[in-house]
Design a protein around this nucleic acid. Structure first.
Lengths: 189, 189
DNA sequence: ATATTAAGATTACAATCATCATCCAAATGA
DNA sequence: TCATTTGGATGATGATTGTAATCTTAATAT
């Protein structure tokens, strides 16, 4: 209940963001209350508005945070090829399928965000272009192959999560991997 | 407020289902209240439980209805090839991207349904297998190509809806069409 | 040291939610 | 014709929601 040092405020702010980025992806935006997030951040719900103007503002910020989490690993790679490989392996991993809370926000929140076109949709749209650019064939500035792969990846993991049996879920991941190879070999010519 | 004829009850039941199938896909499950649905069906919210045990039960039934709506057109085709062509054209149409309320429920509700594995997830999982079977190469019982195409289609339309600009949205549809051709020509050998 | 500031806690608010008990009237069966 | 049934309307339930005003207290500035 005290006033905290300036750095402590940033820490609280960061904990709220981290909690929101996880809970939104795990439970959905509508299903996650401000109180849920604040509790997960170790705070009480009343203090929320010292950090964000509204829940919608938090959604936008949490989406950006989630994108950063997802891309930071891949972008830390020494070269482009390695970055692509890391991104693909991570995206199609069983861990990614089984842990939406730390996975791609386009999958977990895409449908919900596409509905009300606010700042969150802008965020999501540019995230999608950023991921596609990462996957695109290096040479030209032809992002089409990257967009096609993103579509396949997003669809494969979405369906892998929907799949009732573990066998079908695993098959969806395998089919995604195979499909990416097919697309890649085609666009390489 | 009266007691209606037996056929009139079925009609009410059907109107509730139709309204639910549309509103759930348009606004999401959490964001759609029982009262919203009943109002859209021309009834008052209290009477809902004469037709369904719970909102969850309605979700399952509405999902099934949505799948039926989507597949009926394609499955009315004279032959398999024509059915596939119709399904693909419908799926990647701008109308489908712009009207989630009458589109594929796997896209609109997949993330929400994958979260709480109840009967709705069973429904969604079998819907996904059914669509994949429709798209699969006729010869063997190898559904893998069908699953790959479903992943690409679902991903492409999801991203087309997320895309902020109409240009990017149209490009996602074009990329989806192109990608399906690539996958198809590869698996045909 | 004192005054000021502001982070977070507490509490409250007006809405909205899913669910249900009760009531009403029309359709059915005798 | 009359009693019974039942679809739907009405209204209430307790819970939960986003948002905000108020209070408390520690960190800062003077």
């Amino acid at each position: 209940m005290p006033r905290m040092s300036a750095s402590a405020k940033e820490e609280s702010h960061d904990r709220i963001l981290t909690a929101a980025a996880r809970l939104f992806r795990e439970r959905g935006i509508e299903a996650t209350s401000v109180a849920d997030i604040m509790k997960a951040a170790g705070l009480t719900h009343g203090g929320f508005y010292r950090h964000f103007d509204s829940k919608q503002a938090l959604v936008t910020a949490a989406f950006r945070r989630a994108v950063e989490e997802l891309l930071s690993e891949a972008e830390a790679a020494p070269d482009r090829e390695e970055a692509q490989a890391r991104f693909l392996a991570r995206y199609l991993s069983s861990e990614h399928v089984g842990d939406p809370g730390h996975g791609c926000p386009l999958i977990a929140l895409g449908a919900e965000i596409a509905r009300d076109d606010g700042p969150a949709q802008t965020e999501a749209s540019s995230a999608m272009e950023r991921m596609a650019a990462l996957l695109a064939t290096g040479e030209q500035d032809d992002v089409d192959p990257g967009l096609a792969m993103m579509a396949l990846l997003l669809g494969a993991v979405s369906l892998a999560r929907i799949a009732k049996s573990p066998e079908l879920s695993a098959k969806m991941r395998a089919v995604g991997e195979r499909g990416v190879d097919v697309l890649k070999s085609h666009w390489r010519d």
